[in-house]
């Protein structure tokens, strides 16, 4: 299609008279699917940010040129099939154990870029012990954490990160702090640990925030490649289907309500003054 349309443009310009040959190809692709992302369509629900986050990770792998030496660790949860979507080596870990698997891979093959991709049900619930100890040990891995405040795949049950008053299938009258406690803020919790080199949270709600997310992800990857410590980027993601909202309303809900409980920003940044952890 590109060739045909360009030749039409070229003909038009030749009739106009003042066109050099190199102008025949005048359209430049400025945004396309990253090389590290496979062609398979995502299985995620409409409006889910998992796809956006997958694309950003693939963009980063392309940007750093790590495609031939990346090992990704998939979680259990909505992103359980993430290994289908990356053109890199991927390992499927048991529920919540992705940081432990990543530890093994990174220690056995220190020249690889190792990342884990985890949801909040995986990292903040059953896998909380794994991520705390991986952070305490300062493992040179990069954790991409997706926080949508609900167990999406299993049918919308309450997660440790669900907001107070949030209605889910296991808290039909809204989450009651007296009965089920308060939301766990993973970044605040882990930022006390010495092994963490970079930690940030961002809401994937606008093109501006997506660019901010890229900036954070670059630093989280540098935390590993410059041998400083563990890097973690938490994104606040919508779950339109389980929240019972349209995709647009879900983004508004994040910007109005979720960011009050989970404030975005950088929590740890040891890259500027890289103290060895």
């Amino acid at each position: 299609m590109t060739t045909a349309m360009n030749s039409q443009d070229g003909m038009k310009k030749q009739n106009g008279g003042s066109v050099a040959a190199e102008d025949l190809v005048d359209l430049k692709c400025v945004f396309e699917r990253p090389q590290s992302l496979s062609d398979k369509p995502f299985h995620y629900c409409p409006g889910c940010s998992h796809g956006t986050y997958h694309r950003l990770i693939a963009e980063m792998i392309d940007e750093f040129g790590f495609m031939d030496r990346t090992v990704g660790i998939c979680p259990v949860g909505c992103a359980v099939f993430a290994y289908e979507y990356f053109e890199t080596d991927m390992i499927e870990a048991s529920h919540g154990r992705a940081p432990a698997v990543a530890t093994g891979v990174k220690r056995a093959l220190p020249d690889r870029f190792v990342f884990t991709y985890q949801g909040d049900g995986d990292l903040a619930s059953i896998g909380m012990g794994e991520i705390i100890h991986a952070a305490a040990r300062g493992e040179r891995i990069t954790v991409f954490f997706v926080n949508n405040g609900i167990f999406g795949m299993t049918g919308g049950q309450m997660a440790p990160t669900s907001l107070i008053g949030q209605k889910t299938t296991t808290s039909v009258d809204g989450r009651d702090a007296r009965a089920t406690g308060h939301p766990i803020r993973v970044c605040e919790l882990l930022s006390n640990l010495e092994g963490v080199a970079y930690m940030a949270r961002v809401a994937l709600t606008s093109p501006k925030n997506i660019n901010t997310c890229r900036k954070y992800m670059r630093k989280a990857i540098r935390a590993q490649t410059e041998d400083v410590g563990l890097g973690l980027v938490e994104v606040l993601s919508p779950c339109p289907v389980q929240w019972g909202m349209s995709p647009g309303d879900a983004l508004h809900h994040i910007e109005e309500d979720v960011v009050k409980e989970f404030p975005p920003g950088e929590f740890v940044d040891k890259l500027a003054d890289p103290v060895k952890a």
């Binding site: 003042s18 692709c29 990253p34 995502f42 956006t52």
Partner: peptide
């Protein structure tokens, strides 16, 4: 401007731009 492509969760949008010289022509 690629705002749509940035937001598309499916990476289903490609964006092309005219080169500067072609735009002037």
């Amino acid at each position: 401007c690629a705002m749509c492509a940035q937001m598309c969760p499916e990476t289903g949008i490609e964006i092309y731009r005219r080169q500067k010289r072609a735009r002037q022509d």
